[in-house]
Amino acid sequence: MSDPVPARPTGGDLIYRQRRPVRLWHWINALSVIVMLMSGLMIFNAHPQLYWGQYGANHETPWLAIGSTGASGFLRIGAVTVPTTGVLGISHGVALAFPPLLTIPSGYDLAAARQWHFAFAWLLVIPGLLFWLWGLASRHFQHDLAPTPAELHPRHLWQDITDHARLRFHTGEAARRYNILQKLSYIGIIFGLLPAMVLTGLTMSPGMDAAWPWLLDVFGGRQSARSIHFICAALIVGFIVVHLLMVLLAGPFNELRSMITGWYRLPQEKAR
């Protein structure tokens, strides 16, 4: 995003927006995140209850449970039970917490799901670490993702939130860079949720707990780590939904072109 551009680009100009390492990482990461989410849901299906603490099994009370009694599915969080027949717990007569359309593999197969999950974990972690190194060295993070003090001013933040809510996106010269909400959510993903997923994932591994015992102290036990892993996955799903919605609203052709070829056409200035 810092490459040479015409002296002062305006709406309608084609600018070079995404450098190759960003594009490469982005698509590898998107693939691995989606495979990890889908195989993760199958792994969850093997014991669809979550606990806090070091241990937790059928004799403990889960804080979250998905299941079915007879033909009706439910989601229970704490004392609240929501009927979810046809979506969670049971759908099309299949009694699984998450339905076949959302999982890898689609039919119950814990062994295969774990094989997918742990293979794609490498595709998440290795490119992720390389992207961290490159992003710092090339100053992509400092230059394109770090918010400026002015952007963090509550008035500016509020302005951006209300603009987004009215679907008024930046245009012309102002659209050359990520807006503050984009910056914050991308930083949250790259430095918050993705590392949290990896570390809580490692905490669930008995082998890693022996190698790095501090993992258990950081997350408060294996079952807490499992709960945090699930919550972070849900937050990533939330990010993806909003992310894709924004791509659609901002103009999917132009947005996708920029993430595939690097080139982006600045939206025309509109009279407000």
Partner: peptide, 12 residues
């Protein structure tokens, strides 16, 4: 020690 089932639960 903690016993971890492949399914996800643990017991000590």
């Amino acid at each position: 020690t903690r016993h971890d089932c492949v399914e996800g639960w643990s017991a000590i």
